[in-house]
Design a protein around this nucleic acid. Structure first.
Lengths: 349, 349
DNA sequence: CGTGGAAATGCACACGTGTATAATAGTTTA
DNA sequence: TAAACTATTATACACGTGTGCATTTCCACG
């Protein structure tokens, strides 16, 4: 059993409230008494019980994190940023990964989070359903969603500007002289897929070019390494594209592998661009041209947004009038184009 | 303020202990009363307070995880395995990443973990110093260390068999006909570096070959992408090696990049092998021959080891005689050789 | 010398839950 | 019919911490 304030009180010959006050540097305890108590506490290796404290003070200083899969190459980097900001602000992280459990309507992972009375919630997952939102919303805690592609309009969300990024990538290909550019989207429809396609379409249109319907293909993002059926189909068209705009890096890498199997050289015979700049996009061969998402920065901004909400909700609790809740914020971050080796001018025919 | 048992009791016209018992399916409450109480609880959206419960029961069902960096390509996969097993067993994860904080002798990250009275601890970091061990050992909780390269002999540790793996890789190169094989270690000395070097040396010796001293080089693993000075030096030797055994995949990737800059073709002019099989070793060009560490499995086994300790320590607490603590276990996992594209027979001279 | 006040500390209670014990009602048995 | 039991629920207290309030001690001032 760990040491408690009572143990210290007994050893110091005082009452436990005095110990509690001394350890909180309350000016009402005599300096020498405080020193004595602190010395005994250190000597006994006293560490206060977070449970007892939070029960009394109604503060846990814990933030719940819901993540899909810890090793996800995108989110794990976002988590780095979140962790950095939150622990600097004195918050601890209560992590619930929920690979399969999320199919469960009453997820035990989420239940555990609510039981622990986290002060805020951070959702880093693309697949949080409406049912989970209601389960979480009941607790009415500050909530920030990082990079979620839910179609619902949720109050506090960090996006990155997919439309802009997709536009930049497409423009890059146009600048190289490509006129037959195809889009390989993912089959999970959502805000992201939609916006990336939109950015692609807009940019092509602005260049007074046309996108044939068969140049818009979809593929499952779950098996990025497998042969991409969509790319196969695209390359078998009478006039195959000379460049591919892929939904993300994982799919772009799958596309490059498929092209290699088809005997097509990248970028000479076909340019490929990805999206996200996941860490190993800098290791593939050829190095992938992509759009860098500021993942770490995204995590940091999301965490800061949560901190602001936490401050706000505490201020509101003390003032006890309710000035319309925290402002509905929604931040969109912009990354930048990274031109590497997987893009080149099209072959002259 | 969340709903409490008292709120439910009031609504149901009973006392709070009855509510508590009803929700725990205590047979002593009348079935209809229990049903009524449960209905009200569900209706009010009652979620018990983990703090209050653990204060009373002295159980938190939380495991503390100390990790270096969440996005680490090796550990994040280990974490997947840990998470899987622990949450299936009903434990939640309290995460403390500690990138920079670990230099702090009294790390606030560790302090938070101890305050929260986690039932067990899982250390997934290579850089946990002796000072931290004492800070943690004071709490005297079950502790499992996954893949730590501390030189100290710690009780519950999961290793992978580095000596074996390194031997397999070296033997593979010998089988291809290489006779000039160099080792590129990392400058952070520790069990891992030592064992991998040992496996390398043993295998060469068993083949009745000799390793010249200048074929053992060291490099910092912190900048794996930068030009590897060690590889540069090795290739400038009068008789440069025809194969490199690198400490891990990250360094192997750096080595390949360096060789490319030197105009040496991999694997024709120089074979390269890594260690770990981090996920993007399957994306680099050429695909890296490496030794697969069962990372996910390692996480699972580590978590299972912790669960066994937890059971054991609870049993001991109830029996109140102390049969010498949990058995000092230490498991070593064996991975397997993955032959891919970065190795080939040496050029005939 | 008595009184007012500041300084220092102890006492009592609260947070939300769980459990041992007491109390009540209802039922059976001698 | 009274006693002994069972079934059901209420009362009391504990976990470890923090805080309002009462209490004690001591010094200064009139």
């Amino acid at each position: 059993m760990p040491i408690t304030v009572k143990d210290i009180a007994q050893r110091a010959g005082v009452s436990h409230p005095t110990v509690s006050r001394a350890l909180h540097d309350d000016p009402r305890v005599a300096p020498q008494t405080a020193a004595h108590i602190k010395q005994i506490a250190a000597q006994l290796g006293y560490v206060p019980s977070a449970a007892a404290r939070s029960l009394k003070t109604n503060r846990t200083r814990v933030v719940g994190i819901i993540v899909n899969r810890i090793s996800d190459p995108f989110y794990s980097r976002v988590l780095d940023g979140i962790q950095e900001v939150l622990s600097a602000a004195g918050y601890s992280l209560f992590l619930s990964a929920a690979n399969t459990e999320f199919t469960d309507p009453d997820s035990s992972a989420i239940r555990a989070i609510v039981e622990h009375r986290v002060e805020g919630l951070m959702i880093c997952s693309m697949f949080v359903s409406a049912a989970h939102f209601t389960q979480l919303a009941g607790s009415n805690r500050p909530l920030v969603i990082a990079h979620n592609l839910s179609p619902e309009d949720t109050p506090h969300t960090i996006y990155h500007d997919d439309r802009y990024g997709s536009g930049q990538l497409t423009q890059h290909l146009l600048n190289l002289g490509h006129t037959r550019i195809a889009f390989v989207g993912n089959t999970h429809k959502g805000r992201e897929t939609r916006d990336r396609l939109k950015g692609f379409r807009e940019t092509i249109r602005r260049a007074r070019q046309h996108v044939p319907a068969e140049y818009i293909a979809y593929d499952s993002p779950d098996a990025p390494l497998a042969i991409s059926a969509a790319v196969r189909r695209l390359m078998q068209l009478p006039t195959p594209p000379t460049a591919l705009v892929c939904y993300n890096d994982a799919m772009a890498i799958g596309a490059m592998e498929t092209l290699r199997q088809l005997g097509k050289h990248v970028p000479r015979e076909c340019s490929v661009v990805g999206f996200d700049n996941i860490s190993f996009s800098a290791y593939v061969h050829p190095l992938l041209t992509t759009f860098d998402q500021p993942k770490y920065e995204l995590g940091r901004v999301a965490a800061q947004m949560l901190l602001r909400q936490l401050d706000h909700s505490r201020a509101r609790a003390s003032e006890d009038d309710e000035p319309n809740g925290a402002p509905r914020s929604s931040i969109t971050l912009r990354g930048q184009l990274l031109v590497r080796e997987s893009t080149a001018p099209p072959l002259k025919m």
